[in-house]
Amino acid sequence: MKYLAIVCISAYFALTIMAGSTEIAPEDVVYEDGAVDVSLSGTAGDISAGAEIMNKGAGNCIACHQVTALQHIPFHGEIGPSLDGAANRWTVAELRGLVANAKIWFPETMMPAFYKVDGFIRLGDAYTGKAHDGEVQPLLTAQQIEDVVAFLATLKEE
């Protein structure tokens, strides 16, 4: 029993260390022609969590994009292209790069960089209008990026 507990605890630590070592910080992401080959979190993305992020919080992708698969959610924007069939146009590595920092593919794009922590002008503290203080968090976490990418990878058209 005691032995089992020790095994469990050490397995837990081994896993967290692994997870810690495989998570790539925003500054360390390597873009090849705008694409990012490796998972940012080291853990597979969750499609339904990704769909949530498309609609809510700092993701809010449908503020700018129309997505037929998310038709049950009201008010899709018209700023960016429809994401229907995005997985036909882009590989998973390219989708990851686009969500993390679309400005590498499209330098002038209006699309925010969701996994970036520097280079901002008058960075605020979320939506308070006040100055930001302390360590900068990217708009989405590594795992949230993976979740969104997993969702985007389902957007295929015949």
Binding site: C64, F75, H76
Partner: peptide, 17 residues
Amino acid sequence: ELSCANCHEQNYGNMIR
């Protein structure tokens, strides 16, 4: 990273959410 022009010059007429 949005300017006034991003919304009101390049995208007037479009829906944002």
